[in-house]
């Protein structure tokens, strides 16, 4: 039973991270209909920035929570900056191009960023400091749930709540929803569509950066290739929940995380990634609209 609960929590932890990244995919898709292939790389950029910040800040012997927050801030700032820049350089000029052009551009961006970090830093794994403090009160349950699991779960929950409020009540959030529904109409009523799209990339990137820092601290190492697999899996989560749907992304993330956790725990860990890929292929073939998405009939 303990093993089951352990797998359950590790599934939730994974799922939270997938959900955080999946939100970026889903928001961007909802607004410009693009699979932002480079989104996984943004997550990697976030994790690397956090590592650089944590390494530099560790010289000043700050307390752990301060270290965590400052690294998080750095990760969020730089990841958002990269997300913003990528949209402006690689996607904005292609807004009226055929559908596949921005996707190819996104793939190019992804390869570029991966190799940029590889060349600037290293292709090897780098150890990542444990930025999340160990809670004493969790010690008796150490075999079942670690403190980083708890922090990740709570952080994700808080972020989801904040995001929902943001989308629902703020001006930018409303503009985002309007633009997602009908870009031309939004433009006509005076919404600056370019700014809304930029905001979407910034918010999505920030979420990915949070995910990047949390999971890097949880696992304890990163390299420049982590974005690819994480990106694909988060995309799977987004599609599973119904791409374009924000609650869908969260649901998809948790389902995928739990599936992976149980499948690797009870079946075989060799095929960890195969489960996710198979799930992706199966959903896209049998229910491309996802669990919470609506199937839109093609306009003739």
């Amino acid at each position: 039973m303990d093993y089951f609960i352990e797998l359950f929590f590790s599934g939730l932890t994974r799922g939270s991270i997938y959900a955080l990244i999946a939100l970026g995919y889903t928001m961007v898709y909802g607004i410009i209909g693009l699979i932002n292939f480079a989104h996984g790389e943004i997550y990697m950029i976030g994790a690397f920035t956090a590592l650089a910040a944590a390494t530099i800040l560790s010289f000043f012997s700050l307390p752990l929570p301060a270290l965590l927050f400052l690294s998080l801030a750095a990760a969020v700032i730089w990841a958002s900056a990269y997300g913003y820049t990528i949209e402006k350089l690689a996607y904005r000029p292609l807004r009226h191009a055929p559908r596949l052009s921005p996707l190819i551009s996104a793939i190019g961006m992804s390869i570029f960023l991966q190799n940029y970090v590889l060349l600037a830093q290293t292709p090897d794994f780098l150890p990542f400091p444990a930025l999340i403090p160990e809670f004493a009160f969790l010690a008796p349950y150490a075999g079942v749930i670690g403190s980083s699991d708890l922090v990740i779960l709570l952080t994700t929950a808080v972020i989801m709540a904040l995001l929902s409020l943001f989308i629902k009540f703020t001006r930018t959030g409303k503009a985002m929803r309007a633009t997602a529904q009908d870009r031309t109409m939004a433009m006509l009523v005076g919404i600056s569509v370019n700014r809304v799209i930029s905001a979407t990339f910034v918010v999505g990137s920030a979420l990915a950066a949070v995910g990047g820092l949390l999971i890097a601290s949880h696992i304890g190492q990163i390299n420049c290739f982590i974005g690819f697999i994480a990106g694909i899996k988060a995309f799977t989560a987004a599609v599973l929940g119904g791409i374009g749907s924000i609650p869908g992304a969260v649901l998809g993330g948790f389902i995928l995380g739990l599936t992976e956790s149980f499948a690797t725990g009870y079946v075989s860990s060799d095929y960890e990634d195969v489960f996710a890929f198979s799930l992706l292929v199966l959903i896209l073939i049998f229910r491309p609209a996802g669990l919470l998405g609506k199937a839109a009939p093609e306009k003739v």
Binding site: P93, L94, G108, M109, N115
Partner: peptide, 16 residues
């Protein structure tokens, strides 16, 4: 060494 970096950049630049 810069091969893949260039490939990525080429894909973006060609599309744009």
């Amino acid at each position: 060494d810069y091969r893949m970096l260039a490939f990525g950049a080429v894909l973006v630049a060609m599309m744009v």
